[in-house]
Computed example of a mutant assay.
Amino acid sequence: MFGLIGKNIGMTSIFLDDGKNVPCTVIQVNPCYVVQIKKIENDGYFSVQIGTDDKKVNKTNKPLLGHFKKAGLSPKKKLLEFRESSFSSFILGEKINMDIFKEGELVDIKGVSKGKGFQGVVKRHNFSGVGERTHGQHNRLRSPGSIGAGSDPSRVFKGKKMAGRMGKINVTIKNLLILKIDFHKNLIILKGSVPGNKNSYLMIKKKKWN
């Protein structure tokens, strides 16, 4: 199996066998179900769509209800698609548990980072500001400075680092170590941090060579 959907519970720290205290993230991985299998003949590529966590029927629109009914499943809160070379071994409605992972394994975590809102260039792009407070310069400490010439080209080039909305983008953290797995509570403890807020959903992918 390729991976599962997990929910970010929060961060903590644990002691390793050598006595070191390391920061780690707790992820809840409830059973996932195969909702759709995409094939080259119909969709142009191979992938499998899986879902997790039940959702109320009265909060699901009719097209999605039909989508889940085709797989013989109840509505799910979160759907994610895993693209690989072939998924001939999967069956619609199949249940996938977290026992595909093991302690000591490396995984990739993909999620949506925390939104920071509208931020200036110092926080967004690590600018240092125009300079120190000298020669009567009292309000330029966090200014972006010049953004281009005036007469030629008489415009600002696309991609110029300026103030704007920060965060809320797809982020992938690679090679995170699984420190501990609790199969009774459906919990995975990873070394390090992961993108996103608490209770946000994450894509947990096994390394290709595992």
Rank of each mutant, 00 (worst) to 15 (best):
Lys7Cys: 08
Ser13Thr: 13
Leu16Cys: 10
Asp18His: 10
Asn21Val: 14
Val22Thr: 11
Pro23Thr: 06
Ile27Met: 07
Asn30Asp: 12
Pro31Val: 10
Gln36Met: 14
Lys38Arg: 15
Lys39Ser: 09
Lys39Met: 04
Ile40Met: 03
Glu41Ile: 14
Val48Ala: 02
Gln49His: 08
Gln49Met: 09
Ile50Cys: 00
Lys55Leu: 05
Lys56Phe: 05
Val57Gln: 02
Val57Trp: 01
Val57Cys: 00
Asn58Arg: 05
Lys62Arg: 15
Pro63Val: 07
Leu64Asn: 12
Leu64Gly: 11
Leu65Lys: 09
Gly66Pro: 12
His67Cys: 14
Lys69Ala: 00
Lys69Gln: 12
Gly72Asp: 03
Pro75Phe: 04
Lys77Pro: 03
Leu80Ala: 14
Glu81Arg: 09
Ser85Trp: 09
Ser89Ala: 08
Leu92Lys: 04
Leu92Gln: 06
Ile96His: 07
Glu105Lys: 11
Val107Leu: 04
Lys110Glu: 11
Gly111Tyr: 02
Phe118Gln: 09
Gly120Glu: 13
Val122Arg: 12
Lys123Tyr: 13
Arg124Phe: 06
Asn126Gly: 10
Val130Thr: 04
Gly131His: 00
Glu132Gly: 15
His135Ile: 03
His138Arg: 15
Asn139His: 14
Asn139Cys: 12
Arg142Val: 12
Pro144His: 07
Ile147Arg: 11
Ile147Pro: 10
Ser151Gly: 10
Asp152Arg: 14
Arg155Phe: 05
Phe157Glu: 15
Lys158Met: 04
Lys160Gly: 01
Lys160Trp: 01
Met166Pro: 10
Met166Phe: 14
Lys168Cys: 10
Ile169Gly: 08
Val171Lys: 02
Val171Phe: 04
Ile173Glu: 07
Ile173Val: 08
Leu176Thr: 06
Leu177Trp: 04
Lys180Trp: 03
Ile181Met: 04
Phe183Cys: 07
Leu187Thr: 08
Ile189Glu: 00
Leu190Asp: 03
Leu190Ala: 01
Ser200Pro: 04
Met203Lys: 14
Trp209Ser: 13
Trp209Asp: 14
